[in-house]
Amino acid sequence: MTIYNIYIFDRMGTILYQTNWNRLKQSGMSSEEEAKLMYGMLFSIKSFVSKISPLDPKRGFLCYKTSKYALHYYESLTGVKFILNTDITIKNVRDLLHQLYKEIYVEYVVKNTECEMGQPIESELFKLKLDQFIKQHMKSLQ
């Protein structure tokens, strides 16, 4: 299995972090532009998904899938949004994202004075831990 890339947004739509692992084809736009469009798309999908839901949508939008990749969406109660693009074989990404929030974001961003809340994450410690986390999971899920 493969994880292609991640985006993390806060409640205000600020892109906190984005990075690629095995992304062979780029979108051809600047990463700022891409993040902006990503947030816009999610915002629209989310609101439409709950609008047309025949029942109380509870958690709402979770993922979409194409023939080549799947986009997984996890939102913490505090409105931090994690988006992970993976190949289409991978399962239980929701749990993985929840774990990522709990063990990486909370531990190395929230409990790290170097990171200002609501600002893009610059911390090397966070980058390192996130990279280790993703690589370890790519290996263990193979």
Binding site: S76, L77, T78, Y101, K111, M117
Partner: peptide, 17 residues
Amino acid sequence: NIGVRMVEDFLARTNAG
């Protein structure tokens, strides 16, 4: 400033809904 960080710890730790 403490509150905005602490709530994340609280949610992560208690798995509150």
